[in-house]
Design a protein around this nucleic acid. Structure first.
Lengths: 210, 210, 210, 210
DNA sequence: CATGAATGAGAGTTCATTCAT
DNA sequence: CATGAATGAACTCTCATTCAT
């Protein structure tokens, strides 16, 4: 559908030119339509941006919620990894959307969109908070820093993405999900060799039960 | 000096209006000079932005390198925390600059600035990589994920900042540095009670005390 | 018929939005058809406007000529009043058309329409001139200002309409016709009581009754 | 001054192209400045139009009030003629402004300007009403139609202007003022030869006092 | 060097017109 | 013939940049 093609094109152009630098004509060209056609579907630039945000938000939460809906009550680590995979997959496909989620600059006219973005990030964090609470309940996570876990995972995702952006080396979604989960769960500190950090361990700290 | 006042004003306006939304006149007004005066010091918008980036980069590396220049060879954890404090302090004072470091959007004309930014992030990562290498050499960090540590710390910083942005709760520089260091080093996983994660522990490897 | 519905709709929209502000889509909506249908009946905006002008002109002259076609050779005053009634009735029903007749602005593309409008006003004036000539011949009107009479009556009509527009008070067609005829014939100057200005006086020249 | 040049240019272009058809660029070209300069003086098209209206209104009322401020208590006819001369002089110099006063079309965005115009016409009529009241008090005008006199004079002015527009024959201001005053005072009806309609007669109807 | 009015290329938006269905 | 999505030229308004004072 034309409307979808416009959103896709807008996402690409917003990602490349920035939220403020994207030109309506560029979006039209990439969508393969005339400028006027944009305005047949979205009353103005603001509305287009808002629609893009709403569309991607819906997709994202669909994926996240599907990943979180546990079938057979898996271990926390498996749940976390699966959710990270969903997030990273969406991330790769919709960089412009994630650009919005992270960008701190507002600008005068972006007020509405930024408001929606704020809400989206809030909901995303809420989902991660619930996931982390399950980890704490299961005894897998320390309760102390629980309020920071969502932000930490999100930051690690961003960090890994930035790393790849700098080194221009792209890893697969699964591999990045593993990496982020490992760093998040076990940190970087060296420990006794028996501490395994296998992807989906059945018993988190086997050394505790000799 | 006028030139410095202009850079300060530019930083503020860039932070508020975004890299692309900032208007030269707004910068002039905030700097308390006329528009024309801007062009007496910086030949155009590009140059002003580049100068801002160069200035802040110099300040940042000054702080970072001072924090890294160990007097009396402190423990890795102390070094890390001190460096994070330097980074966070600069972060708080110069949000616009960090906005550049993180923003993924380039825009057609921002090419030069983004190139410089890429280089800056690269150098920052290189310094962190060296720091992490020292941690690995000291046996404090696992060698396995070493290439990711710099990105992980940077991401955690961003995550904590985002968290505060969302919850509108501001913590002090020292506290955030502690938090990031703790999450980075030990992760979120629950362990045997003997595993202490105090800020600057004397015995970082709990396996030594069976 | 569709064509007539379009003209009616166009008249309404032109009256409300102005000759230049009326949008083709608004006309289509009011006519209850699609935009494309407009172009099945009128090749473009110009042609539609010209057709509207031609249609209303034809109607107007039909009414005027009927009013002027005296049955039984009535007195001049009666003829004048009857003609004014016809003009005012058409005026009320077709404000947009009269808007064209009075508007001084042309615009680049309105050239053709304005040319036609000029011709219409000319023909209207010609009819009024002939009417006035009959009044002069009958000894009812002074011959001196004869060339101005048509314009004077037309101006008085416009003035009365403007008055009602300002005071938002609408009078009936017959009443306005009386008023205009009275002002036109006798002016505003006070005179001896014997000077009657009854609508259709039997003896128009008071000098005959000393 | 630039601002005045812009208003003059705007007046001309609005007069030629119509209130809605005038293009900002045309105004700029006629004023001999760049488009951007228009916006240095008037924040947008609306504001420019409103400023034009306010400026011309002020000029007009200055002239009218000066004409009405009688020195030595002249006869009503002289006062009327003098006021008409002022109005016609301003009319000739500022056709666009009078176009606004008469145009009935509103359009969506012209609301503010039309509101101001309505007020202007109201004030103009109020001044004429006061003048006519003096005429009635002096016994020169019949009291019966007094509420219509202002509109009648205004209409006659418009009619004479239209007449000249149609016949492309331009008369001087003084001559037109005489004509309008004569038509307004005495109408078109023929009377006894002794009824003089000289411009400023001392005794309106000399035949009544034999 | 400071100033700020002037500039004009460029961006967002509108709307008369077309044409495949 | 009716339809209405698509088109793109044209218009309003912005803002980086210049230069006479």
């Amino acid at each position: 559908m034309t409307s979808g093609a416009i959103l896709d094109a807008a996402e690409g152009v917003f990602a490349e030119q920035g939220l403020q630098g994207a030109r309506m004509e560029d979006i039209a060209v990439r969508a393969g339509v005339a400028v006027g056609t944009l305005y047949n579907y979205f009353s103005d630039r603001q509305t287009l941006l808002a629609a893009l945000q709403a569309s991607r938000e819906q997709q994202l939460f669909g994926l996240i919620d599907a990943a979180l809906a546990a079938e057979g009550d898996p271990a926390f680590e498996a749940l976390l990894t699966r959710t990270l995979r969903a997030l990273l997959g969406h991330f790769d496909a919709h960089q412009a959307f994630f650009g919005m989620l992270v960008q701190g600059d507002s600008g005068p006219e972006r007020a509405e969109v930024m408001c929606a973005v704020r809400r989206t990030v809030g909901e995303l964090f809420a989902r991660f908070d619930r996931l982390m609470a399950r980890g704490v309940d299961a005894g897998v996570l320390r309760p102390a820093d629980a309020p920071l876990y969502a932000a930490a995972v999100f930051g690690l995702l961003k960090g890994v993405a930035l790393q790849e952006h700098i080194t221009s080396a792209a890893a697969g979604v699964a591999e990045r999900a593993e990496t982020v989960a490992r760093l998040f769960l076990d940190g970087a500190r060296a420990r006794c060799p028996s501490v395994t950090t296998s992807p989906v361990p059945t018993n988190p700290s086997p050394k505790d039960t000799p």
